[in-house]
Design a protein around this nucleic acid. Sequence first.
DNA 1: AAGAGATCGTTCGGGTACGAACTATCTGCC
DNA 2: GGCAGATAGTTCGTACCCGAACGATCTCTT
Lengths: 165, 165
Amino acid sequence: MAGEHTLTETESAVAQKLDGLVLDFEAMAIASNLFRAANAVRNHMERTVLAPHDLTWTAFVVLWVTWIWEPVETRIIAAEGGFSKATLSGVLTTLETRGFVSRSKSQTDGRLVMVRLTPAGRRLMKKLFPKFNAEERYVVAHIDPKERVAAADMLRAICFAVKTS
Amino acid sequence: MAGEHTLTETESAVAQKLDGLVLDFEAMAIASNLFRAANAVRNHMERTVLAPHDLTWTAFVVLWVTWIWEPVETRIIAAEGGFSKATLSGVLTTLETRGFVSRSKSQTDGRLVMVRLTPAGRRLMKKLFPKFNAEERYVVAHIDPKERVAAADMLRAICFAVKTS
DNA sequence: AAGAGATCGTTCGGGTACGAACTATCTGCC
DNA sequence: GGCAGATAGTTCGTACCCGAACGATCTCTT
């Protein structure tokens, strides 16, 4: 999606395949670039910050949400992180095995499982998050500072459009 | 990341955890929303357009790139789609088993594998892509038309920042 | 022409990723 | 109180997803 080939090349190639049909190339470009950007940032973070600690992107997100909101229910972590509870269950087991988080049943509601960081998990996040934020700053460096608020809003608008469907 | 909790709540919670450290909350918000948006769009597409045909997002991207550029080398598909050649190898096998693509060795370079759509694959894309583009249009509907070009540029700027690292 | 080094696709192992089915628990209504 | 329905988390099956290692092939240099 808009990788080696330029957008114009892609457009004319698509137009050939679907001549006669009306297509929204602008929407196509935004959706396409949205994924390239998200993927690129994720890979960048995994290579530069996460790989030295043998952490995946998802594992880091789980640690981050837990760190900020602990003790926290698993359904909250899944919602904040944007993945399913099935996925979270596996990642939590991985992180528990490695000694970064702990699970415990809620005292007030037997259905809930509360997640906390272990001391090792807190040490890890205290060390890792500043590095992570430094890379985030690097990633947005090429966006005009005046347009950064608009950028965040635009992305929120996309989330909103999809949620209310 | 910025799910149920507002951004301000998250910020003050993070600031408490790391008081004294200088953090770029704007960069954090953009990176965070970038992932929420990409994930939301992907899930939306999978539910509305792809699930009826039992296709995953990645499988669709592979079909799309192949459809536009066939015959095409696998390394091009991986680069255009933004995933590793290891991932592509598995997805291609799945699509080959289901009769949507075919692999064949290049005549001029024995290392290369050329990928083509089968007639069934072409029929599928001709039917599927207009639906897909309609959903893309829906996704960007909440972005001011005047800002859409800037939006695409902004996403490209992020890709560029990460690539040149 | 012959080896060193680069390139391409596959395979392997471990870790996500999701929907569906399942168990356990809670809540509401009678 | 007791049962229907909702809710939370795990498990299961299938399908990605990546880095590393691998064998096959090409290219470059001499």
